[in-house]
Design a protein around this nucleic acid. Sequence first.
DNA 1: CGGGCGTTTGAATCAAATCAATTGGAGTGG
DNA 2: CCACTCCAATTGATTTGATTCAAACGCCCG
Lengths: 261, 261
Amino acid sequence: MYADPAILDTELLNPPRPAVRSMAPAPAPSRRTREQVSAALELLGSHVKPTRRVVRAGETLFRAGETFQALYVMNSGFFKMVNLSLDGREQVVGLKFRGDWLGLDGIANGRHTSDAVALDVGEVWAIPYDELLAACTRQPALMSIVHDAMSREISRGRDSMMSVCTLPADARVADFLYNWSRAMGECGKRTDQIKLLMTRAEIGSYLGLKLETVSRALSRLTRERVIDVVDSDRREIRISRLESLAEFIGRCIAPENATLQ
Amino acid sequence: MYADPAILDTELLNPPRPAVRSMAPAPAPSRRTREQVSAALELLGSHVKPTRRVVRAGETLFRAGETFQALYVMNSGFFKMVNLSLDGREQVVGLKFRGDWLGLDGIANGRHTSDAVALDVGEVWAIPYDELLAACTRQPALMSIVHDAMSREISRGRDSMMSVCTLPADARVADFLYNWSRAMGECGKRTDQIKLLMTRAEIGSYLGLKLETVSRALSRLTRERVIDVVDSDRREIRISRLESLAEFIGRCIAPENATLQ
DNA sequence: CGGGCGTTTGAATCAAATCAATTGGAGTGG
DNA sequence: CCACTCCAATTGATTTGATTCAAACGCCCG
């Protein structure tokens, strides 16, 4: 994404690649469709009997430290995953949408390692882990679904890492909006107007920024007509064209090329 | 880790927790023993027939964009995972040690999303994914191993995120050394003297820092007698006491408390 | 011996954090 | 209804931690 053919493959950290490689098909953006998610949920519902649970905004599904015994699949709603280190540092380390699984990090540990906090009303399906394992051996398709979910979480984590480590503040916020909008698309919701369910502080936490920096970035995006803050409480954002967000990011990375050429 | 009872649970991003919660058992640090890893490898070897492959330093096991068809389990050696975005940003997004799995992010995609580059000679076991799936249905214990590996990768990714987003540069480098040393322990190697197999630039990339910043951090750690650069090519690091690294991190977070009290 | 690369270190610069003040709702209670 | 507080957000001024730019060193290798 945000392709800019000007700069490509610095070969800084990697052995030189074969020339063809730049021509290789773009790493597929791991897009899921609403239908795929629904199909997965359906399969799941028919092979295990998940306990449906409705959560309201602010409720906590589980907390770090609690013993792990069930996974949760989101049927609707939004969650943030919050990590707290022993020395008191706290961070939003992930955001979850429909079709995502919660609690995967607990499998290896026997304990959850973060808190799952609902950002809105939603429904999750609780699946005791041992039951899931049993069902997976009977139903290989189910196993694939679980693996896919875990794999996707790994990829997303890396993308976040990339964003945080290689993008300046403004671009990071733009990237955040871009991804949120895409996620809405995957849930079958509108992508051109999104409701941020977090405070600036929470967004900042997720992006490794302070709340003032997030606010300034949003102001700049508004000033440059990339977004509109449709208001009431400043959390409703209109995105005219999704590509303009990508372009904005490109401008942040390769500045002053606006005048160039 | 790096517990400092002074600051605890800011409740900034979270609903207030029940008071007992601070007393809950510390989130288990997901420690693996050398024996656990060996047992897993053994089970794996006896239920699928992995193709053993020896890689030499600098070799690439797979590249982003290649079609995914096999997973790789490390029996020895070290790998870095490198992501390259289309606009030319490049980053080391993960480090892998014995017992770790490579390529998990490809499952959901059908393509690998990063390059796996060996930092040293090592042996990996290649396991075609479809064979693994088949074996998992026959052998539930195998499935658990795979899930554990994925789960651990998810947790580790979040830990990295925490480190990058909430620690200042010096502490990040210290944390990096701490984790590397722990990882060596899990491989059954010495933890008090470690050989960094990366340049400062690579370490910086992994930590979201520039190479000069990494260098300065290492200098400071040396000056404060937390580490020794045992030299030749500056990559061999002696760590007298692992706890002093944790203490150093604590000092970075809560400065000037040295004089306080 | 000379060139290249990784590293260290200093000085200048810059992006983001910090500090601080103001606004504007939402909710409360008189 | 208005005065009140509380909290999220915005914006400006200032500071600071990390980057950038630059120079120099040591080491390996042809």
